[in-house]
Write a protein that binds this DNA or RNA. Sequence first.
DNA 1: GTGGTCTAGACCACG
DNA 2: GTGGTCTAGACCACA
Lengths: 135, 135, 135, 135
Amino acid sequence: MEKQQVGSLRFQIDFSQPLHEQILDQVRSAIAKGEIGLGEKMPSVRELAQELRMNPNTVMRAYQELERDGLTEKRRGQGTFVTSSPERVQVFRTDLAAKYIDAFLAQMSSLGLTWTDVKAYIQQNHTSDKGGDRS
Amino acid sequence: MEKQQVGSLRFQIDFSQPLHEQILDQVRSAIAKGEIGLGEKMPSVRELAQELRMNPNTVMRAYQELERDGLTEKRRGQGTFVTSSPERVQVFRTDLAAKYIDAFLAQMSSLGLTWTDVKAYIQQNHTSDKGGDRS
Amino acid sequence: MEKQQVGSLRFQIDFSQPLHEQILDQVRSAIAKGEIGLGEKMPSVRELAQELRMNPNTVMRAYQELERDGLTEKRRGQGTFVTSSPERVQVFRTDLAAKYIDAFLAQMSSLGLTWTDVKAYIQQNHTSDKGGDRS
Amino acid sequence: MEKQQVGSLRFQIDFSQPLHEQILDQVRSAIAKGEIGLGEKMPSVRELAQELRMNPNTVMRAYQELERDGLTEKRRGQGTFVTSSPERVQVFRTDLAAKYIDAFLAQMSSLGLTWTDVKAYIQQNHTSDKGGDRS
DNA sequence: GTGGTCTAGACCACG
DNA sequence: GTGGTCTAGACCACA
């Protein structure tokens, strides 16, 4: 468990998974949760690469995808900034969540589990993670 | 959407994802759901490879993982058979489901969504998939 | 655990291992332990094959190896018999044991374990199997 | 007897046994004995394949099993490394040894030999391999 | 016929 | 450069 703080971002990387995806996920998560503020400056590609001991190309790829998602913007000569639009973040967040949820339900269904089964499991094993699961 | 029936198994393959994983998933799913009976003979490596138009090695790889999971048994010179033990299937199924569920919850949490949010979303968008989701 | 009794022999087969080797081992073991008497008649190839639901070729191969080892003899028109010579059994038994023991020690050594380590393990975990392991 | 040194690993291969198993065994042994250090980089799949004059797929297969055993980790684009966790190695080593020992005892027992018999044999024939076998 | 091993060589994603 | 996936096709042991 190697956690690293870079600016207002916290990273925890694991070499058994594509590195650029992990950066992407963790930055997305930080934005979604408001851990990095809207309009805030991101670490530069080089800085982040150095801190995380990665190839700059790897970081660059993650940044490009963040921009494609509309979560960040490049300003020439200044660096990369988190978008200032809360709507963008919100839309992105719900879209992504919807995608994940759908995939998850398909997965459960492929194991022959119903939504009731899943809720039962979560209630038993994740009572601390719950958010009011009074079924 | 190219669906193919091979013995009691149905396959639908998509070339943008590792082929052996797809075979693995679909056979697992068929076993978990009881679509192929316990103790039943699987299609032979060569037969399945021919039907799905892929290389025998690719099918073999999937079959090896199935055996590692304890879902199938090989009988030398006779073929590959689904395990006859319902417990194995059950244990496997719940273990795998637990793994998926935990990963899913971590994912949701990383997007800043609570379990209540998720349940609300599912109730709205998946009323047909439900299994009594009266929260 | 499917055990089968055939004449004075008991078989327990497992499909994840060459069948002829299993027959071989189990007959050898029965002779070494005196469970089948010297000079006694073995089940015929066909009879055994039928009982164990195997291909006669598989049984035949095991029988050929038994004869090569000098543990059985064929008598034309009468069938296969366990050797009547106790010396043969004894020599065979110690030779085979020596081979196994040497291989085992090499194996342990390749894991970096000394003979003392092995004895310690066995003393702890196999006190019922011991035969006077006062170290 | 063709011995080959590759980095800090020494290989001796024999074509009458599955090649990937031999690689597996010899690397395992090297890790268990500490001949290759924890966290150290393994030869790359291609490099080892070339040195041992075998197909990269064969080496890859061995490497995959090593990883499944938790003895190595792959870092994408960087290579394969021995695990840095001594506990993993230790657990693996004792588990494997236990498996071998149990199988060995079953084998001896099937030949009608007691543990005392075995110890006597070893004392006579392996006085150099001993590690203090004062029984 | 079955599964198991191996080779040769292609193409891909990742860093 | 690294590992990962896939194909085509050979040869083997086993039943």
